[in-house]
Design a protein around this nucleic acid. Structure first.
Lengths: 225, 225
DNA sequence: CGTCATTTTGACCAGGGTCAAGACTCGTGG
DNA sequence: CCACGAGTCTTGACCCTGGTCAAAATGACG
């Protein structure tokens, strides 16, 4: 999941059609804390997330970290480059994934439909990452946090009475490393949103969006909702 | 071209092998200032840059701009998402490109070799963009400018006696919008590098790298070379 | 040359980082 | 069931990097 431009030609969450049995391994389960792969590993499979949340990270040698993305249901993670993984991937929330062989992605002759779907997923990924650039390069801290909540709300928010509720299974540090901020700044931004009654923080890992329009406005830089 | 991690499993610049005549249109030429496509356009072709420099940009509605990447020889630009272009693309330096039909990218059955090459290019793109995230999210202004010069030097630097010379056909504003900075900060960072005798600024659009090791060090956060 | 855009430089300021202290969570074990 | 402790989160005080605004210098071009 990336933070994309809200108004954009909304790419619908992708559907992988029923692949031929041969290229689809059995659904696999992973527990919180497990690693699916590490940077530098040979890519055997790409994974379609069915249930749960993954975290993709890269490290700079001096310890600075970037959370590249969070893998939510519907996302495909683990695209190879030169046959290798270029991030670490571990599990935040117990997960079920469908592994597809690397051949299914890279070789079009075997299961053309699956190949096509995975290719489209890769192309969507590029577009979504471009949007994310804009956020990392140009948005203020408040805008980033608002954008993040908007994106999550749209992707995985649940109805809660007249409001929408969003789970934040990741730590503040994860959010910070995803948005290019510090934990302190993420925390302060959330507090600000709470004090402005745009959100309510039910518990640390659950926010309720009280005024979605205001949040959306803040995410694109309007000073007030 | 993105700013990737220098030490990383260096993805070699891609080679498109000789495609079947049918899917390769004649090489096309564009002049500085021309647009290849706009955001929202239907994708007809992806382009392999042969000569010249392209600029891919996205705009935020309030006018903030992000330069997504620069297209240098060897790069493939114009990957579709949902069949549409998601950036504007215009020409900085007179360009020759080879257009490949969208079908060549998306349909594996027609020219498998070309299809495979384009797919690999898309996958490399994802990996390179992930590296670029790290830069936008975590690097200081000085590191970004140093990283940018390193990347350019490696990709398109020319020998100049014992040194390497790099052309900067883009404006300072372009560099700033690529690195998530302002023109002033880019200018100041370059001045700093010049005063530290890491680079020489021959003219506004040409820098000579005097101490590549120092530059590389600065690009990963070492305080001095 | 003269005009206009781009770049550089300077002075100032603010957003967000850093450092530190306290509050809150949650798992563990008595 | 409660006490303890480690880790996480929040808040405050301070400060620095890089943004803003303005002016001067340089360059591009008719």
């Amino acid at each position: 999941m990336y933070v994309t431009i809200p108004s954009a030609h909304g790419a619908p969450v992708l559907r992988i059609s029923q692949p031929k049995r041969r290229f689809r391994s059995a659904e696999a389960r992973f527990k919180a804390g497990d690693y699916l792969y590490f940077e530098g590993d040979q890519v055997q499979y790409v994974y379609e997330v069915k249930i749960g949340v993954l975290r993709l990270t890269r490290l700079l040698e001096d310890g600075r970290r970037q959370v590249i993305s969070f893998g939510y249901p519907g996302d495909i993670v683990g695209f190879p480059s030169g046959g290798l993984h270029h991030t670490d991937c571990d599990v935040l929330v117990d997960t079920r994934v469908v592994p597809y062989s690397r051949a299914a992605l890279e070789d079009g002759t075997q299961d053309p439909q699956l190949h096509h779907d995975l290719l489209q997923a890769a192309l969507s990924e590029i577009s979504a990452m471009q949007d994310h650039f804009l956020m990392l390069g140009r948005k203020s801290a408040a805008e980033r946090v608002a954008s993040f909540l908007c994106a999550l709300s749209e992707r995985v928010g649940q109805r809660l009475g007249q409001y929408r509720q969003v789970d934040l299974p990741m730590s503040r540090a994860d959010i910070a490393d995803f948005l290019g901020l510090t934990t302190e700044t993420v925390s302060r931004s959330l507090t600000q949103l709470r004090k402005a009654k745009v959100i309510a923080i039910d518990n640390i890992h659950t926010v309720v969006i009280l005024r979605p329009q205001a949040l959306l406005g803040l995410s694109v830089g309007h000073k007030e909702g």
